[in-house]
Computed example of a mutant assay.
Amino acid sequence: MKENLFGSLPSRPVLIRYESERGARTGLLLDDRVYDLAETSGEARYVDMAMVLTDWPAFSGWIKKFNPITHNPTVLVGQVKLLAPLANSGSLYCAGANYSDHEAEMAAAQGNASVNQKGARSWHFLKSSHSMTGTGSTVRVPAASSALDWEVELAAVIGVKGKDLAIETALDHVAAYTIAIDFSARDLSRRQDVPERSPFRMDWLSHKSFDGACPIGPWLVPADNVPDPQNLDLSLSVNGDTKQRSNTSHMIFSLAEQIRDISERITLWPGDIILTGTPAGVGSSRGEFLRAADIVSAKVAGLGEVRVLIA
């Protein structure tokens, strides 16, 4: 990996979306060079990342053989604005309470000895794909919230349709990995004008799916370049102060188990994204929340960095 103004740039090809004079384009990024994917591959439909993922089994073979010597770069990465690598993709499945250190943190915050009621399978909630935004974006605190929280997560992007998948083959359905920040408006999760015991008390839409609630990126790293998704360091900082630092080995349910569990209930499709949970260090555990002008940075080893400004 090389260092430049974007942080670490990839020495092996990754997939990006970027802003151009022709609008949003899909590209292949290698070192500091961007290759327009539709032009380089000769497949006009690859201007849309969704089509790349739909064709993933064939496309993954092409990207493995990519030789920069035989192609001219379209532009240097420092000359473009990176967008979220997927736009309005399929479903965003978000794992809840899926790190052992986060489980212990929540138990302590709630005054319990242990949560220890995780059930036999992982559980997920849905986040709107329209809430995604890219690195370098400005995320506005929802008008009614004063408790915006952060969560760094490893995200897996599905590239092969699957239903009722076995653990042994689950990861074969992953096209790529990326970084996600699951922002949460904690004080909007419960409707204050509704009685506490009412079934209408909870408000997950306001809590988790406001505009900008899911920064993602900076690019998609093909799964072949991530030998073990269960051994990746991840961290999140606010204004340079590290708030979360852990490793994906501390997941309660592995990614393969999550894919199995989701696919038992609903078919997974190319373009679906699984956010695999967050470790300890969230703001609500310490009574800290984000404010305007804060800079949030999330990193996962080998996947780059996502950085956003809070407004």
Rank of each mutant, 00 (worst) to 15 (best):
K2T: 02
K2F: 08
K2D: 04
L5I: 05
L9E: 03
P10E: 01
P10I: 01
V14F: 01
E19I: 04
E21Q: 15
R25E: 05
T26M: 01
T26C: 14
T40S: 11
T40D: 11
T40M: 06
A44P: 00
A44E: 09
R45Q: 06
Y46W: 14
A50P: 01
W56M: 12
G61T: 12
P68L: 14
I69E: 15
T70D: 15
N72A: 12
T74I: 00
V77S: 11
V77N: 08
K81D: 06
K81M: 08
L82I: 10
P85A: 06
L86K: 07
N88W: 04
S89F: 11
S89E: 13
S89D: 08
G90C: 10
G90V: 05
Y93I: 00
Y93H: 11
A95D: 10
N98D: 03
D101R: 15
D101Y: 13
H102K: 04
E103Y: 07
E105T: 02
E105R: 05
A113Y: 06
W123K: 12
K127D: 13
S128A: 15
S128R: 10
M132K: 10
T133L: 08
G134L: 09
T135W: 02
G136L: 02
A144T: 07
D149P: 02
L154N: 12
A156P: 04
A156W: 04
V157P: 02
G159E: 08
G162N: 12
D164K: 11
D164T: 06
A166P: 02
E168M: 13
E168V: 14
T169P: 03
T169H: 12
T169Q: 13
L171F: 10
A175L: 13
A175D: 04
A176P: 00
T178D: 05
I179W: 08
D182H: 00
F183G: 07
A185R: 03
R186I: 08
R186A: 10
R190F: 05
R191C: 03
P195K: 08
P195D: 05
R197N: 14
R197L: 12
R201V: 11
R201T: 03
L205N: 14
S209I: 00
D211E: 09
A213Y: 04
C214F: 11
P215M: 04
P215N: 04
L220H: 09
V221L: 07
P222H: 06
A223G: 10
N225P: 02
N225D: 13
V226T: 15
D228N: 15
P229W: 14
Q230M: 09
D233Q: 08
L234R: 03
L236G: 07
S237L: 05
V238Y: 09
G240F: 01
G240K: 11
T242Q: 12
Q244E: 13
S246L: 02
N247S: 14
S249D: 07
M251K: 13
I252N: 01
F253N: 15
S254D: 14
A256K: 03
Q258Y: 12
I259K: 09
S263E: 05
T267F: 01
L268N: 13
G271K: 07
D272E: 06
D272R: 09
I273S: 03
T278A: 03
G281T: 00
V282M: 07
F289Y: 14
L290H: 00
A292G: 08
A293L: 10
A293H: 13
I295L: 13
V296C: 10
G302M: 00
L303V: 02
R307F: 02
V308I: 15
V308L: 09
A311V: 10
